[in-house]
């Protein structure tokens, strides 16, 4: 038996329950199995597809096209996989992803940590859509960071790679301060609660054998809390996909590509034009 819980996904009410060990069900909310009541997984007949991956439950209101994106690093035996936080934000999912891809704001919003004046230049980087996976990648990104990670001891030029494997999920690979040959992975998985309401899940897959989870979470949550007022003050709330709607600059190449990619995918939720 498990207790039926409910949340909103893309504005639709979805019920779910979990029973140990690791049995999960999700379905469109139905008066036959009311929220808050105890129920058996076997009683769910018209279920939605469900996956238990990277510490989160994933579902789809439609028919998933292939498997969820792979994060090979997640399974490396010496990695620390940490759920850093789930935080509600009053913004649209694509605004959150676009901010995650942006380096230009580091010195002004994450002052003294991910950037510092006068090191404000975003040097040119490459953006491409991977033809096989249809994922967006921004590579060769380089930025001066006073404190790139919880484990940093000094400022350094940090290499970044951004990956957008899903319209509302992004992964950031950055040089590990403890092992220069490997990359730390920071993931932002966004659940669209409504068009301009999200829950942002932050996941870390790190090379770090010394710091506590609490210490690492505190660092990531601090960073995210600095982004929050920026995200919540963007207008319009929904992300305009028309390239003429907002004026990009040279460092916004990943944002331009992201918007075009969303257009090509036919995404209509959290964006302008809306469905």
């Amino acid at each position: 038996m498990g207790v039926v819980r409910e949340l909103s996904l893309l504005g639709q009410a979805v019920s779910y329950l979990s029973t140990s060990p690791d049995i999960y069900r999700a379905w469109r909310t139905d008066p036959a199995t009311p929220v808050g009541t105890a129920s058996e997984p076997s009683s769910v007949t018209e279920g939605l597809p469900i996956l238990d991956r990277y510490g989160y439950l994933w579902t789809s209101l439609g028919v998933p096209n292939g498997d969820l994106f792979d994060i090979p690093e997640y399974d490396e035996p010496d990695r620390r996989n940490i759920h850093a936080a789930t935080i509600g934000v009053h913004c649209s999912a694509p605004r959150a992803i676009e901010n995650f891809l942006d380096m230009g704001h580091f010195p002004y919003v994450h002052t003294g940590v991910l950037g510092i004046e006068p090191h404000t230049e975003v040097v040119d980087y490459d953006v491409q859509i991977d033809a096989d996976s249809n994922e967006l990648w921004a590579t060769q990104c380089l930025f001066f960071q006073p404190m790139a990670a919880a484990t940093s001891t000094a400022g350094e030029m940090v290499g970044y790679t951004y990956r957008v494997p899903h319209p509302y999920c992004s992964l950031l690979y950055k040089t590990s301060p403890l092992d220069e040959s490997r990359m730390d992975v920071i993931g932002l998985f966004v659940r669209s609660v409504g068009p301009d309401r999200i829950e942002a899940h932050m996941i870390l897959s790190l090379i770090d054998d010394s710091n506590t989870d609490s210490f690492i979470r505190r660092f990531q949550q601090s960073i995210f809390a600095q982004d929050k007022p920026i995200l919540e003050n963007q207008n319009p709330k929904l992300l305009p996909l028309d390239p003429r709607a907002e004026t990009p600059i040279r460092s916004d190449r990943s944002a331009i590509a992201y918007r075009r990619w969303l257009s090509d995918l036919g995404v209509t939720y959290g964006v302008i034009p809306e469905d």
């Binding site: 940590v113 660092f219 601090s222 929050k228």
Partner: peptide, 18 residues
């Protein structure tokens, strides 16, 4: 400041070290 608050002028840096 704390994360989520922006200073209007010179301020001490937020400590992230714990």
């Amino acid at each position: 400041p704390m994360p989520g608050i922006f200073p209007v002028g010179d301020a001490r840096p937020i400590s992230h070290e714990g």
